[in-house]
Design a protein around this nucleic acid. Structure first.
Lengths: 335, 335
DNA sequence: GTTAATATTGCAAAGGTTTGCAAGAAATAA
DNA sequence: TTATTTCTTGCAAACCTTTGCAATATTAAC
């Protein structure tokens, strides 16, 4: 049905090996003949059979972009940004296969299927998958968190970022600060926890004086958690949220109670989703550029696949983005 | 390197054809032997070489999920929902390759590479891609809009949906309604335009009395457009937006100007993103369930690929979701 | 026990490509 | 002209499966 190099060879009156060499410039082919073959291939609408190439070279042109899950518990923003970042680097050299690790059937991973994997892991349940990939020798890069000692990673300074934003709140005079953390078992949560706690203890805050609620990093959970905090502690002047989505929820919970942001309650986030900077309530947050992280990971993977040398971890700073959801306590009386 | 059926055959003392038959239950194999072969395969960690299977069967296990673009102009919400919908149906039977049609290199499409395509087209620039796929005989389903007479589609009642929400505004007594449309060249925009216009003329509204601004379906454009509308027409009581994202922007633009939603200005959306129902400002909108659309499309594609019969178009209703961003004009004086 | 029918198995080809090897052609050197 | 080197080219094997066909083993029927 489809045009093969044999068809081209027959038409051009050469052997198919010559066609193959002409097509991908591997061996030497007489210039004129090469031109002619390329022209014929084009006019016949030849498309290389990827399956055959993969079989022969035992190399695929697929890159797996692996998320812990595709369900509602992954943030649409992050997913989108990661795709943008990866695409920007990979272009059309490879196909990008979006995989949900929680749906993986153990034992079905194959080197001939994936030239490399980009792992966007959120949970330790992904370990089995990662282990399988490692056993099969598939090049892997972890983006967003370290997952395994042998897997190069792009990591951002979660701890330092959170420290910066907590410091900022404290510098602005806030002392009664509520915290909305994310899923406690995630590494990102633990690092961010360490970060805010480090700042807090440096400023001499007492653990008991910091009320903490837990969300799941999604909008609605932030709204509920903020509600609980505000209802239980009417002396709070600020709420530090472990990500932007929950911070958005917290803003709503605050205004729902007739309180103003930032006049009555200051709120901070983490991620700097683009939507966080749009509204009139422009979130003070920590920039964690998912596009950049993903792009960096893709670059590393490409290098890894092509040169074979294990890339070194990449460490990205997180920048504090000061906007208008944090008030200065020195300049006003307590509520 | 990797384990092949020959290795299994050698170990089990049978021919590799027998192993093949045992493995995928095609021919008859003595029960005891079959068990043994499966056991050996498992213990040796056998993974079928997809490339070889694809080559032999000239059938791939990849489904292309094709967006017009992956850049910032695709909505993260929709992208996410579509992925969820497709995954729910496809599971792990196929790999899902996310493709950006604007990055496609013409002539590189191949039946052996894609078992089928799900087309989420937003612009006519995708036509070249679709035409190539059609010429190559790759099964395709269009989701979200009709793209080609020969391509079965899952379409929702854009026009009817917009008619419903415009009707609702008019029933509530609004007569000075501003409109924020999306990119004028998109089919969805035209259909939605027809819908609101049909309702408007049925109620005897004059074209000149309806100010229209154009956004690009993203948040920020809605904010800007609403700003223009409000600044230029201080008698507006409602703004009808062509999607939820722009409606969110419009809400912000409204509150930025010290106006309240819905007391001063009513606002409606289209899409019913899950985030639209979370805040205290819960958007009145039209439900357009992307998860459902994508799932339906995936089901059709599967049927198409397996049975070969061209599926019929699927038509989904769009439901008006009344929430709290529309006020009743009869109950209050004009602003 | 013989024949016929059926169940099980192996052989070999095929699918489209790449590539080592050897042969042939052309160019250079003597 | 002949010997040597360098380009070009074709042959054939290999990558791993699936599957039609023929061969063999097993069972059933008489």
């Amino acid at each position: 049905m489809a045009v093969t190099i044999k068809d081209i060879a027959a038409y051009a009156g050469v052997s198919y090996s010559t066609v193959s060499r002409a097509l991908n410039g591997s061996g030497a082919v007489e210039e004129a003949k090469k031109e002619k073959i390329l022209e014929i291939a084009r006019s016949m609408g030849y498309v290389p059979n990827q399956a055959a190439i993969m079989l022969k070279k035992s190399k695929s042109r697929n890159i797996g972009l692996c998320f812990s899950t595709i369900s509602k518990s992954t943030s649409p923003y992050i997913l989108h940004d990661v795709l943008i970042g990866v695409y920007g680097v990979i272009g059309s050299d490879y196909h990008i296969i979006v995989k949900a690790m929680d749906m993986h059937e153990p034992g079905t991973l194959n080197q001939s299927n994936f030239a490399g994997l980009l792992i966007m892991s959120q949970t330790d349940r992904d370990e089995e998958f990662v282990e399988e990939a490692r056993a099969k020798g598939i090049p892997m890069i972890a983006i967003s968190r370290r997952i395994h000692s042998g897997v190069p990673a792009v990591v951002t300074d979660e701890k330092g970022g959170m420290e910066k934003v907590m410091d900022y709140l404290l510098e602005q005079g806030h002392r009664r600060i509520g915290v909305i953390e994310g899923n406690p078992n995630l590494e990102a949560t633990m690092l961010r926890h360490e970060g805010f706690w480090q700042a807090a203890s440096r400023w001499g805050l007492d653990a008991k004086s910091i009320p903490i609620e837990y969300g799941n990093y999604r909008y609605n959970s932030g709204r509920l958690a903020a509600g609980k905090l505000l209802d239980a502690h009417n002396d709070l002047t600020a709420i530090l949220c472990f990500n932007d989505e929950m911070a958005m929820g917290a803003i709503i919970a605050t205004t729902e109670r007739g309180l103003k942001v930032p006049e009555d309650i200051s709120i901070t986030g983490f991620d700097n989703l683009d939507i966080s900077g749009y509204a009139d309530i422009r979130l003070t947050t920590v920039e964690r550029n998912s596009i950049q992280i993903a792009a960096e990971g893709a670059r590393m993977l490409l290098a890894y696949m092509q040169e074979g040398a294990l890339p070194k971890d990449v460490w990205l700073e997180n920048r504090l983005v000061k906007r208008n959801t944090v008030s200065n306590q020195q300049q006003r009386v307590n509520r």
